[in-house]
Design a protein around this nucleic acid. Structure first.
Lengths: 222, 222
DNA sequence: GTCTATAACCTGATAGAC
DNA sequence: GTCTATCAGGTTATAGAC
């Protein structure tokens, strides 16, 4: 077993990164940020009105500007934290030296499924905002060597070489994230086809165990 | 080989469903619709200003309301066409009686990869709008029996039974669409990691061949 | 720090001339 | 059918009292 818990604490804005507090104990600033986070993530930048955030936070509209100056500044803050929560936790994991490839895959699947069960709106938010503003990625220090220099990629490449597979390792990384994240993104569609909330949740629990097996099988078998 | 081309013609709004015309030959109404389609799909409902659509169409703002009465009416039109393009084509395919499971999977992969190469913004648009307005789905006649009653599901279930796998068939359908669509959704992220446009395109071509093999392997092997 | 009131701006929609 | 000019409504941001 590896340091699974650690991932959560690495995520800025994670539920687990702050001690749980009674909403009444949060400072006004924190209340606004929490409300903004919730509504921005759900509806995106343009569809969110600062009035809604103020109401959700239980404070006055003017206070929002008092603390954060503008809607955009507040958004940038939330956006960076959401993005961090979505991806930064993986950075540390990718460079663990003392875990196998399979263990890393198990951890990624486990981490995201847990994360997305409580925060299903995150991927659509992150992907939409990245598309409409790719610059802010690099500002966050996100660059090509996050993956390229990672120990994870090294392990994966070696495994592929061992199997004599001349397939780009990126294919398997895409498969990993696709199979893990996509079901949550398309949940509204899946639920339209007669899958209830409980059944959906159960399916995701099954995937927690199935995905690592499947992904390893694609990597290892001829 | 099956009727692959047919799928395109079943898609309202598909590039292939209209003869290609010089933009100058399009009627004003068509020009507005095309512009609206482009900008709505790229930026979503709220972030789109009717002024932008008018400019893109090369006409005046007032004309937009003259032809379509309101922003929302225009959007609904585009939304239904986009949604149709994204999913309706599959309906017919799912009920072909004379193709094998594997052939259907090959066709779905082929269809979506071709579709998404020219229209990569479609999935994020469709998924975002479905989440914020699930009702419009049923209005379009989309219901649980699209999949539940399909011949595709029947074939898949039988194959699983033959392999004595007690795994919900939905898992494999999720895998199919996830592995096909997700790479396009996350393209901006992938390109940040040093993958150029050409390399990305090549990777997708490789997936056209690899995905059916992988998906069948997961279904068939123990 | 927090509120009310209001300024400044933006956006969708329409009136009316051509 | 197409345009210019403008209205009506809503949104962000600020001024100023407490």
């Amino acid at each position: 077993m590896i340091n699974f818990e650690k991932l959560f604490y690495l995520c800025p804005g994670s539920n687990k990164s702050i001690m749980k507090k009674d909403p009444k104990d949060l400072s006004t600033e924190e209340k606004i940020k929490a409300a903004a986070r919730k509504i921005f993530t759900q509806k995106g930048y343009s569809a969110t009105r600062t009035r809604d955030i103020a109401e959700e936070a239980g404070i006055n509209l003017a206070l929002l500007n008092y603390y954060f100056r503008s809607k955009e500044k507040l958004f940038d803050l939330v956006m960076l934290e959401n993005f961090g929560q979505f991806i930064s936790g993986v950075r540390a994991l990718f460079n663990e030296k003392d875990t196998t490839l399979q263990q890393k895959i198990e951890t990624v699947v486990d981490f995201y499924i847990t994360q997305l069960k409580t925060n299903p709106d995150l991927p659509l938010f992150v992907l939409t905002e990245i598309r409409s503003n790719p610059k802010k990625l690099q500002a966050k220090g996100f660059s090509k060597d996050l993956l390229a220099q990672s120990y994870f990629l090294k392990q994966l490449s070696e495994e592929l070489k061992k199997q004599k597979k001349a397939i780009h390792p990126l294919h398997f990384i895409m498969n990993l994230f696709a199979m893990t994240i996509f079901p949550f993104i398309s949940a509204p569609l899946i639920k339209t086809m007669g899958v209830g909330d409980l059944e959906f949740s159960n399916l995701m629990e099954e995937r927690r165990k199935l995905l690592p097996i499947w992904i390893m099988k694609l990597i290892q078998e001829p």
